[in-house]
Simulated scan of single mutants.
Amino acid sequence: MRITRRRFVAGAAAGVVAGGVVPLRGMAEMMLGEARLTAISDGTLMLPGAFIFEGLPEEEVAAIVTPMGVSSTALEPPCNVTLLQVGDRVVLFDVGSGPDFMPSAGELVQNLEGAGVAPEDVTDVIFTHAHPDHIWGLLDEFDEPLFADARYMMGRAEWDYWWNPETVDTIGAERQAFAVGARRRMEAIEDAVVFFDDGEEVLPGVAAVACVGHTPGHMGFEIRQGSESVMVVGDAIGNHHVAFARPGWEVNSDQDKATAAATRVALMDRLAAEQMPLVGFHLPGAIGRAEKAGDGYRWVTI
């Protein structure tokens, strides 16, 4: 397994490509056999601390996050879209936020182009789940699918949840816009989407792994080449602080807190035991490992 790290800065230091400045093209890259995985930035989110920490013991939270330089009141998690290139396939796991969610996000297309990939090059789009920062980047300015030549894939349970007309009324007022936005984008690919279930091989060497709780049908993906593998975890492990130090805590960002916590504990145990690298959508550095640390774990970039 060969791992390299790429860091890019915004502004003129990033260089001029095709007459324009290309900011922050990517974050990290690794080779897995003949497959290349690259974490492509979609920018960052800007969230109140309560989005994750509400209801958690304040002193314990502070003891975990303060040494990391993380605020307990304002969060700016990165958004890392995974790009897989293997053979003739160019695969995206999720599509970022697009321009309509947060002004600090929606940078995927320009950063893909900075990495040499145009939207029409993408052959497959596989969704971990249908939250805004993962699916709202699906449409272009004409409300057409941006990755027009791609095949779209989503877990059957995840699709059914967001497609259900009752979801908008049961998800809670603070997430109603999530449901409306997901349904609008899913309607654009209704006739083209391919469904899958837990354990299915969605592409050669890419197997779906149910990681439910954050959303009802959230999926992770194990990418395997020979004896080597890596896990794309989406938001099943949603941050590098309390999710690792206290994976069993029930956090506010998960829709089903208890189920998500159980999923996170089991996933963390497996990843640490197998020392399997993972790609995290909201983890700084994007590619790393879960290492045992006391009663919990710690995030280690590689």
Rank of each mutant, 00 (worst) to 15 (best):
G20C: 10
G106F: 02
L47T: 07
M31A: 13
E58S: 13
G43R: 01
F53P: 07
M46R: 13
M31Y: 00
R36G: 01
L47I: 04
R25G: 00
D143N: 14
L146K: 14
H134A: 10
V65D: 02
P119Y: 02
V86K: 15
D143T: 10
D42K: 07
R89D: 15
G11N: 06
D140Y: 02
A13L: 11
D140T: 07
M27N: 09
V17H: 11
Y152E: 05
A150R: 05
V117L: 02
A12T: 12
F142A: 15
I40A: 10
A28S: 11
A18H: 11
D94N: 15
S41P: 03
V17S: 12
M31R: 13
G69I: 06
G33N: 04
A10V: 05
M30G: 01
D121Q: 07
I126C: 03
G69C: 07
A74E: 14
L45C: 09
T128G: 12
F51A: 13
F147R: 10
D149A: 15
D94F: 02
P57L: 13
M30T: 11
P145V: 08
H129D: 14
P57N: 12
T38Q: 14
E54S: 15
Q110W: 06
P119V: 00
S72Y: 04
V16Y: 05
R89T: 02
L45P: 04
G106W: 02
M153L: 15
D88Q: 12
F127K: 02
P145T: 08
S71F: 03
N111Y: 04
G49E: 08
S71M: 07
P99T: 11
F93C: 07
A130M: 15
M30R: 06
D88M: 06
E54V: 03
F127R: 03
T38S: 14
P132W: 07
E58D: 15
E59N: 14
P103S: 09
R25T: 03
R89Q: 11
V21I: 12
T44I: 14
E120F: 02
H131G: 03
I64G: 01
L24T: 12
P67E: 06
V91R: 00
G96H: 07
M31L: 11
P78E: 10
G26Q: 05
R25L: 01
D42Y: 06
P145Y: 10
M102V: 09
A18I: 00
V86G: 01
M30W: 00
N80E: 09
L24Q: 09
I135D: 07
A28D: 14
I126V: 15
L24E: 11
I64R: 01
N80V: 10
G49P: 06
L47M: 13
V22E: 10
G26A: 13
S97V: 03
E60H: 03
G106E: 08
T123W: 00
L112N: 04
I40M: 12
L146E: 11
D100E: 11
A28F: 03
L138N: 04
V61A: 04
A115T: 01
G11Y: 11
P57Q: 12
